[in-house]
């Protein structure tokens, strides 16, 4: 069970957070103009990487803020934490 450094509250136990899946998937601005395949790409397709993955997390039992986490899924090491709307600090 890992520790997450919430950008608003500081380091807290993982049990206070919930994971919202892959980050940086923007909701299309004009969904009506997308084909079924394009919409399905947004709706269903996720990378599920073994290694460095960009994720959305919510401090659900804390400040309830959403933010982004760069996590290595093979060892749970967290490489960076940054706020919504900010650019990833690493590639």
């Amino acid at each position: 069970m890992f520790i997450i450094n919430c950008p608003y509250c500081g380091e807290r136990d993982q049990t206070e957070f919930s994971c919202g899946g892959e980050a940086h998937i923007e909701r299309p601005k004009q969904p009506t103009e997308l084909s079924d395949d394009q919409w399905a790409e947004y709706l269903f397709m996720r990378k599920n990487i073994k290694g460095i993955q960009f994720e959305r997390w919510n401090h659900i039992h804390g400040c309830r803020k959403w933010f982004n986490v760069v996590r290595d899924t093979s060892n749970d090491k967290i490489h960076a934490v940054y706020k919504m709307g900010e650019r990833p600090p690493i590639k």
């Binding site: 919202g20 923007e26 909701r27 959305r56 919510n58 659900i60 309830r64 959403w66 919504m84 709307g85």
Partner: peptide, 13 residues
Amino acid sequence: LSKLEDYLQTEWP
């Protein structure tokens, strides 16, 4: 409530 907060914070700030 969580879902609404999610949209407000991430998609439509």
